[in-house]
Amino acid sequence: MAATLPKRITKEIERLVKDPVPGIVAQPHEDNLRHFNVQMAGPTQSPFEGGEFRLELFLPEGYPMEPPMVRFLTRIYHPNIDKLGRICLDILKDKWSPALQIRTVLLSIQALLSAPNPDDPLDNGVAQHWKDNEKDAIATATAWTKQYAQPAPQ
């Protein structure tokens, strides 16, 4: 069995349930409370609007001294997210601070969807597309959102 969960993680889960972030649902697995299933709504006025993106988030042993691991499970056309769903975001790497939380991390990812940064790319092809012809790249991202990120019918 896994070691007992630190108080901090328990509290975070409690708060996520009690006071959820608008547009984001984060639910821990029943058998592993460090592993979360995340649903994120594409931000409005972005090519991802109307999409429902699935992510997974894992809190490593060193959390909160070490950052959580997050990746997209839904395909997404974004210069800072590669085709394996890995995310290039500074707070998930060297700019991590233990004062950040699951909530703030997910909010930052949502903000990244609203404001892609092609100058610090993870996927060079997508980033180049974004720089050369932003309009066309946005059209592709919108098409991908329609194709891959449709909310599952309830």
């Binding site: 060193g62 001294m65 070490e66 707070i91 700019k95 601070s97 233990p98 004062a99 950040l100 703030t104």
Partner: peptide, 25 residues
């Protein structure tokens, strides 16, 4: 927490002169 934070930065990341305040950014 500060103690744990410093231990992580020093032992695991090998930082010394540039350990920043744990506050976000």
């Amino acid at each position: 927490c500060y103690n744990e934070y410093l231990s992580h930065k020093i032992q695991d990341e090998g930082l010394s002169a540039r350990i920043q305040c744990p506050g976000t950014r």
